[in-house]
């Protein structure tokens, strides 16, 4: 009745875990091993915390936990991993741009348009091969509001939103690491560039832009965009490489 067990369980959670449940956002840089503990806590949140007020946003389990688990595998336990996440959604006042009017014609009486930019996941990881990986997932939403007058004289307000998702991954290679364009090229929707810096480092960037899918597809998109950067630095092959029968 008085949530004593819930409160005890709540107090045992990692501070970032509590912050994500309360504010639906956090920003921190921690050793990779500590993120792994946090990911375990986030993954079991629904089993330990049932109070509605402390419910996690859905993307915490569907996107944040898998991303943390994957990056943890490629990092040394003490390597720093920075994560900034904001899972409040795109259409919140502080993410919106300027409101601008639209030219309308009858039956519309007035219209306005506003763009929201929502960088809801930013990650910076120092991988165990010496490269630095940066990942950004940004939703851009165009919101149009129309005021219409029907023939019967009713006034109606309509709101339409068109979300677009941009996933951008950047990998800064250590000095001297060679790159080679992979044989099967990246698909057209995945733009990749390699840039040689003056300090001897190579920077690989991959960007994909498309409609915002359901969240269970986001992790696939994130891993595909990120994985493209690792095709440019293939591992050494032994002389005889048996192919697996498919």
């Amino acid at each position: 009745m008085f949530w004593r067990k819930q409160r005890k369980a709540w107090e045992r959670l990692h501070p970032l875990h509590r912050q994500l449940a309360e504010e639906q956002r956090f920003s921190a840089t921690l050793p990779a091993a500590e993120w792994a503990e946090l990911a375990t806590g986030l993954a079991t949140h629904d089993q330990t915390i049932t109070k509605r007020k402390w419910r996690l946003p859905p993307r915490a389990a569907s996107v944040l936990v898998p991303v943390l688990r994957v990056l943890r595998e490629d990092m040394e336990p003490g390597a720093p991993l920075g994560v900034t996440t904001d899972l409040r959604g795109a259409v919140v006042p502080d993410k919106g741009g300027e409101l601008r009017g639209l030219q309308v014609r009858p039956p519309a009486l007035a219209g306005s348009e506003r763009f929201f930019t929502d960088p809801w996941l930013l990650v910076r990881a120092e991988l165990r091969d010496g490269s630095v990986l940066e990942l950004a997932v940004v939703d851009r939403v165009r919101q149009r509001r129309i005021r219409k007058k029907s023939r019967s004289g009713k006034i109606k307000h309509k709101v339409k939103e068109k979300p677009v998702r941009v996933v951008r991954a950047t990998r800064r290679l250590p000095k001297g690491m060679a790159v080679a364009r992979p044989a099967p090229p990246a698909p057209a929707w995945l733009a990749v560039t390699a840039q040689q810096k003056e300090n001897g480092r190579t920077v690989l960037r991959a960007t994909a832009k498309g409609p915002a899918h359901a969240d269970h597809r986001v992790i696939e998109l994130i891993l595909t965009v990120t994985g493209e950067l690792f095709r440019w630095t293939p591992p050494r092959r032994s002389a005889a490489t048996p192919r697996r029968a498919r």
């Binding site: 080679a180 364009r181 990749v192 560039t193 390699a194 040689q196 991959a206 832009k209 440019w232």
Partner: peptide, 21 residues
């Protein structure tokens, strides 16, 4: 990860990406 053969054929793609971000 080591060096791969055929090294700088990627150079033609240098510069900032034009992926329309």
């Amino acid at each position: 990860y080591g060096s791969a053969p055929g090294g700088d054929d990627w150079a033609a793609a240098s510069g900032d990406h034009t992926g329309g971000d």
